[in-house]
């Protein structure tokens, strides 16, 4: 094996990632070639220095901190599927309740009032008794109230 080829494979040789044949060839080459041997020694020194960088320690209560966060998330996970179903149902009932007590109810009442006023008009009764401030009632009478 020539130097160029050895240099190309030297990193994988160091990482123990070559097949037996290639390993044996490089091993033999390093015994003979001082230049490649020197390069390999530099790689070994580098590896040792990287490995020797000081480790840091996890903060003292690392495990309990993480477990607390997990338990808190579990309790208040509003985005979980059951929570979303509950929330959606609640919002649906809220909107339905609002519609029934608000616009829908008013519509029914207005319809009843319209019928009541038209009955009064048909009977020729005084319209001053009716609250003309109410917009829904205004449309039912086009004449002048005082004239009647």
């Amino acid at each position: 094996m020539k130097c160029n080829r050895v240099k190309l494979l030297l990193s994988s040789f160091q990482d123990n990632e070559l097949n037996e044949k290639e390993r044996a060839e490089i091993f033999l080459h390093l015994k003979k070639c001082e230049k490649c041997k020197h390069e390999f020694e530099q790689l070994e020194t580098l590896k040792k220095e990287i490995k020797n960088l000081n480790d840091i320690e996890p903060i003292q209560n690392f495990t309990s901190l993480v477990m607390d966060k997990i338990n808190r998330k579990k309790r208040f996970n509003i985005f979980s599927i059951p929570s979303l179903v509950y929330s959606f149902t609640f919002i649906l009932f809220f909107i339905l309740g609002f519609l029934i007590n608000g616009p829908l109810k008013n519509n029914v009442e207005n319809k009843q009032k319209e019928i009541y006023v038209s009955n009064l008009l048909m009977q020729g009764q005084e319209l001053s008794l009716i609250n003309v401030q109410d917009k829904t009632f205004n449309i039912l009478y086009n004449g002048d109230l005082n004239e009647k």
Binding site: I56, E57, T63, M67, I70, K74
Partner: peptide, 21 residues
């Protein structure tokens, strides 16, 4: 769930130092 503590204790130093490097 509490068994997750074992996983944390098993890997926290390696993970921490991988990130720190």
């Amino acid at each position: 769930t509490q068994n997750f503590e074992i996983i944390i204790n098993r890997y926290n130093k390696k993970i921490l130092n991988f990130i720190n490097r």
